[in-house]
Design a protein around this nucleic acid. Structure first.
Length: 285
DNA sequence: GGAAATGTTTACCG
DNA sequence: CCGGTAAACATTTC
């Protein structure tokens, strides 16, 4: 589930709880939690201090006082949680980082330790060590900027969309064109922009694509305010709270229900190997 | 009991 | 380049 708003919610939580903390322990409990493209084993972050938490699209990474970053992708069900040490292990705990706040000797009785845990039921999520020399880690270098990136080139992106000989929803999901949009926000953005998901990207005017991008930004920023979307307890933010945006969805998951705009029944079709929800009355091809 | 479906990404094949 | 499909996995729903 985690798309841009959920990943940003997680990033904010990590920023709140992990900044300037030193990683003093790493315990990998599942092989698949490490991306095969990782430069090495995750325990090489031991001893590093977390200097920044950054994000592009659905990828996030911890910047360290090292020339490499710890990159994370949440996949379908990944979560980060910050816990006091000795909290009972979750069933799907994949990696445990022990982190410690550096306290001034004059005040410190003992360094305060906590655990940063990566939990992932379906194990499509992963962590990796990746070289960080430029703006983003090497592993993230192929991912396009997301719409909230200050250097997002809207005019260029619109032109790229219009060159695609494919359906608009497929293009919207392509993380190499524009990152951060997944199945839920694709359906919601298309509904808001009144565009049929199977419309050919190349058949849409620049103005229409421009308004679609406006809708995507609007829908995702609303979701962000509400702490992201969640359908079950799989997704929670760092402190364990779920998002509430699910109550605000207009099309996604609402097959058979009336369209909030025109009351026509919302349809669901299989498409690109996933479900698409749309209003056949408002969203014409 | 079993099939289908679930928010992601990547790889492969035609 | 494009699209279809499968695969990685655990769990829930029909």
């Amino acid at each position: 589930m985690p798309e841009l708003p959920e990943v940003e919610t997680v990033r904010l939580g990590l920023e709140r709880w992990c900044l300037e903390q030193k990683i003093v322990g790493v315990e990998v409990l599942h092989d698949r939690a490490t991306n095969p493209r990782s430069l090495g084993a995750l325990d090489c972050v031991k001893g590093a201090t977390i200097k920044n938490i950054a994000r592009r699209g659905k990828f996030l990474w911890f910047e360290l006082d090292r020339p490499f970053a710890l990159v994370a992708h949440l996949g379908m069900s990944g979560q980060f949680r910050v816990h006091p040490v000795k909290t009972a292990d979750e069933k799907h705990l994949r990696t445990r980082f022990t982190i410690s706040r550096n306290l001034f000797a004059a005040h410190a009785v003992a360094a305060k330790r906590q655990e940063l845990r990566f939990i992932d039921q379906r194990t499509f999520g992963w962590l990796a060590i990746s070289e960080l020399t430029g703006e983003v880690p090497e592993l993230v270098s192929g991912i396009a900027r997301d719409i909230f990136d200050p250097n997002f080139e809207r005019v260029e992106v619109i032109a790229k969309f219009r060159k695609r000989k494919t359906e608009i929803k497929r293009a919207l999901l392509d993380q190499n064109l524009m990152s951060g949009v997944g199945n839920i926000y694709a359906d919601e953005s298309l509904w808001r922009a009144k565009i049929h998901p199977e419309s050919m990207a190349s058949a849409l005017s620049a103005g229409k694509i421009n308004s679609l991008l406006d809708c995507a930004a609007l829908v995702m920023s609303q979701a962000l305010v509400e702490g992201g979307t969640s359908f079950d307890s799989l997704y929670t933010n760092v402190t364990g709270q779920s998002g509430y945006f699910e109550h605000s969805l207009s099309a996604y998951g609402r097959e058979g229900e009336p369209c909030p705009r025109c009351a026509h029944q919302i349809c669901r079709i299989r498409f690109a190997n996933r479900s698409s929800h749309f209003c056949p009355n408002c969203q014409r091809k």
